[in-house]
């Protein structure tokens, strides 16, 4: 029970984020209107995705140092849930963009960056699928994960220079910075970010436990 406090916290925060996010008052903004509530669902997906990919990167690095299969199992689990979050973030974002920007896809640098991230992590999953030997699969995919993650970071600096952004807060659009983000919205937004991330972490730990049991079962005679 004592080690599970964060799971209870996750449920409480998410319940608050969903109920409060849909019912509590939000500032009325031109064009955004009520779609501003998407902030509680769409933006936490990105924070969750970045954190999960970061944790996965850390575990891949540790695998390369220690050559312990547990690190490989963890790296894959966090990466898969990160991919899930990126898909959800993409869907919620495109749905929102249809009503505010007029079309689901409009070459926004953040959309492009996410699309590129998604493509390269899908490629990671394909790469893993193609290798039979467990140790070799762990090593090669860890190398690719580190390589891809390290190349993603400069990408975040390059893309915004290449194409203009439509996102709130960029290019003169009203955003969620200190002026625009209402203090009432913060009260829901920060708990929502923590809640969604904890949910992602929770799903990952379940995935890790299943895979650790499978690994043990396959490697005992």
């Amino acid at each position: 029970m004592r080690s599970n406090w964060w799971k209870i916290l996750c449920v409480v925060l998410l319940a608050y984020a969903i109920i409060g996010g849909l019912l509590l008052p939000v500032p009325a903004r031109h064009i955004l209107n009520e779609t501003i509530r998407n902030l509680y669902f769409h933006v936490p997906m990105w924070f969750g995705m970045m954190l999960l990919f970061g944790i996965s990167f850390y575990h891949s690095l540790m695998y390369l140092r220690k050559q312990d299969m547990n690190y490989d199992i963890k790296a894959v689990a966090f990466l898969k849930i990160g991919v899930l979050f990126s898909c959800l973030g993409m869907i919620t974002g495109m749905e929102w963009a249809k009503y505010t920007w007029g079309e689901p896809w409009s070459n926004d640098p953040k959309q492009l960056a996410t699309a590129i991230c998604m493509l390269s992590y899908f490629a990671y999953l394909i790469l893993r699928g193609g290798i039979k030997d467990e140790e070799k699969r762990a090593k090669i995919s860890a190398v690719y994960n580190v390589f891809a993650f390290a190349l993603m970071i400069p990408l975040l600096f390059i893309l915004p220079r290449m194409v203009d952004s439509l996102h709130p807060g960029n290019g003169g659009n009203p955003g969620f910075n200190s002026y625009d983000l209402d203090s009432r919205m913060r009260l829901v937004f920060y708990p929502a970010v923590i809640g969604w991330f904890l949910l992602g972490y929770w799903i990952s730990t379940l995935h890790i436990r299943i895979n650790q049991i499978n690994y043990k079962r396959d490697n005992t005679f």
Binding site: L112, I116, C117, L119, S120, A123, L127, Y144, F147, A148, L151, P154, L155, I158, L159
Partner: peptide
Amino acid sequence: LGFPLVIP
């Protein structure tokens, strides 16, 4: 593996 990485 490479296409997404070389897009930028």
